[in-house]
Amino acid sequence: MKMEEVSMSSLDNSKLEGLAQDILSDLVEDACLGLCFEVHRAVKQGYFFLDDTDQESMRDFEIVDQPGLDVFGQVYNQWKNKECVCPNCSRSIAASRFAPHLEKCLGMGRNSSRIANRRIVTGNNTNNKSESDQEDNDDVNDNDWSYGAEKKAKKRKSDKNPNSPRRSKSFKHKNSMMGPRHRMDNQESPRMLMKDEAFPQ
């Protein structure tokens, strides 16, 4: 070992360069050999030619390059006027309006935090009352669902657009009808009370 190290230190640059070249060609050869083994195995196992197909099916899946069509040859704005069915209220809404509608309908997002708050308040009340809260929750859910069904007919006539303020207002109206007493008990949200009284119907 000692001798080797001495001989190493006495190397000149050209020799080092040659050594580096040799190591590189060794590595490249290794890589080639690895590829050969890989290909040979693939051939013997029968999966080497799986990925190339005949010309006919290649033509079927060619990329379409025509104005007005996407790469699959379909008209690309055919989804523009599609309608989506809301999973919460099962109304069909234009796809472009679906996201804002869902935000309101599910009570998530910025603007509908008030709706969400109100829901939390009613939830707390039912819990405080410690009656069969399961049933009460069901009531709330039913309200949610029947709102969509019952409102559908009216909505179609008056306003096609499932607008959020309108929706939240009518929601409030419905809830104040359902249980004004619950809210009276709760002193935590006086602002909510004011709001509800602002729409006596």
Binding site: V28, C32, L35, C36
Partner: peptide, 19 residues
């Protein structure tokens, strides 16, 4: 031919090109 190809064949054919 698919059946007759060997690793040696592949190595001799591929290595120069690979380098």
């Amino acid at each position: 031919g698919l059946e007759h190809v060997t690793v040696e064949d592949l190595v001799t054919e591929v290595t120069p090109k690979g380098r």
